[in-house]
Amino acid sequence: MVLSGVGVVSAQEGVVTHDCLLEPHMLVDLSSPVPGVIASINADRGDHVKKGAAVVQLESSEERAIVNLNQAELAFGEKTVSRNHELYRQNLISAQELDELKLKSELSRLELAVARTRLARKRITSPVSGVVVERLMDPGEYVGELPMLKIAALDPIHVEAVLPKELFGTVQPGMEAEVSLEAPVGGEHQARVAVVDQVVDAASGTFGIRLLLPNPDNRIPAGIKCRLRLIGKEL
C-alpha cells in the first residue's frame, strides 16, 4: 500500500484524517543457534505463541546421553572426595592427592554445565509473543542458517502514516491519535506517536510517522488499512 500523505477533511468541520497502515511491531525469522535435524515443530501457521515457549526441538539423543554421563561422573567424583576426606584426616593420603580429587570433581561439574548448555540449545524458543505467519521447515529436515518459522509480534502494533511537509514540527512523540480501522475489523482505537521522521522526502513533500497501538490479545491483524486523526491538533 502506498500512503499518499494527503489529508482528507471529514464531514465534521475542521477534522482532517490521514491514511495509515497497520504493520507488525516486529517480524522475526526464527532460525537455530546450532545445526541439526528437526525432531518436532510445535507451532504452525496462524498459531499464537508466547515469548519463551518451545516451538522447535532438534534431535538431541547424543546430547542427552552426554548429560547423563557427566551427571554420573560428577556423582562418582563427589562420593570419591567425600570418602577421601576421612583418609586425609587419618593422614593416609596427602593434601595434594585430596586437592587433585577435588579438582577432578569440579571439572566434572563444569563439563556437566557445558553439556546441559549444548542440550538446551537444541530446544528453540520463541523470542517474542506473536503469531506464526509462515512455517518454512518440517520434522526430519536439516536446519542450518535458514529460518524455520516466521513470527509476527503484534503487541503493540505499528501504525505507519505519511503526512504532508506542512505539518512537520507540529507532530511530536507522545501525541495521541484516534485510529479508525477499515472493515471487516472496524472500530476506533487510541494510539500514541512513537517516531517522527526527521527527514522530509523532497520528491513527495512528505514525512513519515509511526504510532503504537496496544493489541494485547493480538485481535487486530497487521496489513489493515486505517485512517488516523491526531488529537489536540487541527491536522
Rank of each mutant, 00 (worst) to 15 (best):
R219M: 10
V6T: 12
Y142K: 10
V9P: 04
A161N: 03
L112C: 05
M26R: 15
V81F: 05
Q96H: 13
V128G: 06
A53V: 05
V67E: 15
E78W: 02
R118S: 04
D99S: 13
F168M: 09
P216W: 06
M137F: 06
V143Q: 09
V143F: 13
L112K: 12
F168H: 13
E178C: 04
S61F: 13
V28W: 09
S204P: 08
L98I: 00
L30M: 09
L110Q: 05
S126T: 05
S60D: 14
V81C: 03
K50G: 06
N70W: 11
S60L: 07
Q57W: 08
L154K: 02
Q172E: 11
I93G: 09
E86N: 02
S94E: 05
V195G: 10
T125S: 13
M137C: 13
L92I: 08
L22W: 00
G208Y: 11
T206S: 04
L30F: 01
R109Q: 11
G140P: 06
E178K: 09
L21Q: 10
Q90M: 09
S10E: 15
L181K: 10
P184C: 03
Q172L: 14
D44Q: 09
E106T: 10
A39N: 12
Q190H: 00
A95C: 03
L3H: 11
L58Y: 12
A194C: 02
G187A: 10
L74F: 04
H18V: 06
S82H: 04
L146Y: 11
P35G: 07
A65D: 13
Q57F: 08
S105Y: 03
I38W: 08
E62P: 01
V34F: 13
V128S: 08
L87T: 02
A43W: 02
G186K: 04
S4M: 08
E188V: 08
G5F: 09
L58T: 10
L228E: 02
P184Y: 06
E13V: 07
Y88P: 00
T170R: 07
A115P: 04
S10N: 15
R118E: 12
A177K: 03
V193T: 01
N70F: 11
L22T: 12
A95V: 12
E97C: 02
T17N: 09
T117W: 03
Q172Y: 05
K50R: 14
